[in-house]
Structure formats: C-alpha cells, structure tokens
C-alpha cells in the first residue's frame, strides 16, 4: 500500500457522495486525455501539484524516481507542451479505464482516494494492448467548489514497459 492511503473511518454518506464526485472527475480527466485535448490536462491540477508516474517496485521501496515527475502545474504544462510540439513518436490512441474508487480519508477540504486504472494503447498498425495496469493514489482539494488534484501518484504494476509511455496516465 502506498503510504498515507490506508483506509480511515470516513462517514459512509459523505464517502458515497465524494466517490460519485471523484468518479465524475476521473471520467472528465480520462476524456480529456483519450480525446487528445492535452492542453486541458494541466487544468485538473492545483498550481503546486505533484504528479508522478512510477513503477510499483519504486513505490514499494520508497524510491522517489518518476517515469514522469512534475512538482508544479507549470511542469505539467511543459510536459503537455513538449508532447504536442516537440516529441516524435508513432501515432497512437489511448483509453483509460478507472475503477474501484475508494475514498480513504477526508480532512476538511482535502480528500485522499485510491483507484485502479487500466491503460489500453492502440498503435495504428498493431493490436490494442493493455499498456499499463496501475493504481492512482490521489490527494484532491476543493478549490472554488471544484475538485483539483494536489498530488497524483500513478503507480504501475507493468514494470516492463512496451517500448515507451508517450501520453500521461
């Protein structure tokens, strides 16, 4: 388990309401990425957000490296910009499937939640493959009534990556 994401006692009604709200968040987030609106992606984060994609072996050993590592919304913007304007890669489609949302802790306007994700990748000359199986460990905060990610740790089980990971998770 990622540290800080053990289940605490959360009011059942509140957890259900939040879970629904978080599922809507994941749906909108996945839609932005899967439909290629990469410039929308940074808008799901707070200005001081931390975003990291890392292998489960790193998470388990408490190692800090990220396949993608950003410790500001500005860096998240730069990543989106680099993918859209500087990077060379074969055309591909991606689809995110986010399930098993679990609200583990609520402290005022800060919500900690877990979810599982599957990332399917389709290269245009190949089959659709399960590119990553992973889990999100998220810290949300409510800003002007809207949930934003203050910290997203994407921890993938698929240690051996099929060549590369181009788009964010």
């Amino acid at each position: 388990m990622y540290p800080g994401f053990e289940l605490t006692s959360v009011d059942v009604q509140q957890a259900r309401a939040l879970r629904f709200e978080i599922e809507e968040f994941h749906t909108a987030y996945a839609h932005a990425l899967d439909s290629g609106q990469l410039q929308q992606w940074p808008e799901f984060f707070t200005d001081d957000a931390v975003y990291r994609i890392t292998a489960r072996e790193n998470a388990d050993e408490g190692l800090p490296v990220g396949l993608v590592y950003a410790d500001s919304k500005a860096m998240i913007r730069d990543r989106a910009f680099a993918i859209e304007h500087t990077q060379m890669f074969a055309p591909r489609y991606l689809q995110h499937f986010v399930t098993n949302v679990c609200v583990v802790a609520v402290e005022g306007e800060t919500i900690r939640a877990r979810a599982n994700y599957q990332l399917l990748q389709t290269l245009v000359d190949g089959p659709t493959t399960l590119h990553q199986a992973g889990r999100y460990f998220d810290v949300f905060v409510r800003v002007n009534g809207r949930l934003l990610l203050k910290n997203r740790q994407c921890v993938y089980d698929t240690l051996l990556i099929a060549n590369d990971l181009v788009y964010p998770v």
């Binding site: 490296v65 396949l67 993608v68 950003a70 860096m75 060379m88 890669f89 074969a90 181009v166």
Partner: peptide, 23 residues
C-alpha cells in the same frame, strides 16, 4: 528528479530514441 524527465521510456529525449530505433 525534475531533470529525469529528459530520459527514460517517457523522457523528452528517451522516448524518441526508443521510437526511432523501433522504426
């Protein structure tokens, strides 16, 4: 860690090498 974004299988440079070599 921030500069690590240049390298690796999602690196700004790293992934391009992987793509080019595959091609």
């Amino acid at each position: 860690l921030r500069q690590g974004n240049l390298m690796g299988p999602s690196g700004f440079l790293g992934l391009e090498d992987n793509e080019a070599i595959k091609f």
